[in-house]
Amino acid sequence: MSPFRQYTLLSALTGLLVISIVIALSSGSVSVPVTTIWQQLINPTPGIEQQILWELRLPRALAAFVTGGLLALSGVIMQVLLRNPLADPYILGISGGAAVGALSVILLGVASIWITQAAFAGALLSVFIVFGLAGRQQWSATRLLLTGVVISAGWGAVINVMLTTSTSNNVQSMLFWLMGDLSQSRTDSWHFALLLGGLLLILSQARALNALARGELMAAALGVNVPRLKLILYFSASILTATAVTVAGSVGFVGLVIPHMLRLLGARDHRWLVPCSVILGGSFLLLADSLARTIVAPQQLPVGVLTAMIGVPAFLFILHQGARSS
């Protein structure tokens, strides 16, 4: 793919991001015109529109963008680390661990205070269990994948026990958490710092990722320090995923499908794929969340439902186009 096409793709994605932000800020049970958004952002004047924008929609839009970016970036990393196109940020059980943490505090009735910390702790616990079992000596992609999938299944069993033994009130909030939901999500500046830091770290390894995609031996023969690279990838993807999960629960589909969409659009070189994934992942979740808020307004759907509802047809369309053109 020529650099011209790469720049075109990157510009188009940036355009999509701007449009997604405008849609996220203007749509909802009260629609705010674009000109008013612009005025309020530059020069906030007190009123109902200022409240809606600054206190409800902007924080939620930021949370959607960060979550989408983190998940897509983590998805790219996991797919190369495991050299498996089916890999997604949750495949090694991180979301399962986070869910058990989050569901435990919902069960204990202290969710409002502890849910973020509990989810993060659960995610880290899972990361270290999988690494301890699969990663210490010679860890092959297959061994890591199998360990992760089995640990994931274990967490799934614990989650089911929690769901079946809880009161219906708790089950409702548990299900929203499990499907991924942005209605309670808030972000801090460190979330953005982490996304930017992760992006730069992975960009610095982007060429090595191109080599690793052709196998560990090939990467080593081309001069890549494979054991170090795998450690960087495993722990950065884990922390990115754990952060995303603590912001929005386990939003599915973004981390799996966004990298594939971009590869099908021609961005297979990781120097392009990595930044494009962050932008498209963020935009995608912004759009999905805007729909989640408006489609059955004033009721809200969990955003995880919408990511699949938009993602499935969009992905199948690109897959079909790709098959026809090659």
Binding site: M1, Q79, V80, R83, N84, P85, N210, A213, R214, G215, M218, R263, R268, D269
Partner: peptide, 12 residues
């Protein structure tokens, strides 16, 4: 050769 992940001839 391992070609699990997509790549073009030129990229390879």
């Amino acid at each position: 050769n391992h070609d699990d992940m997509p790549a073009s001839v030129h990229e390879t």
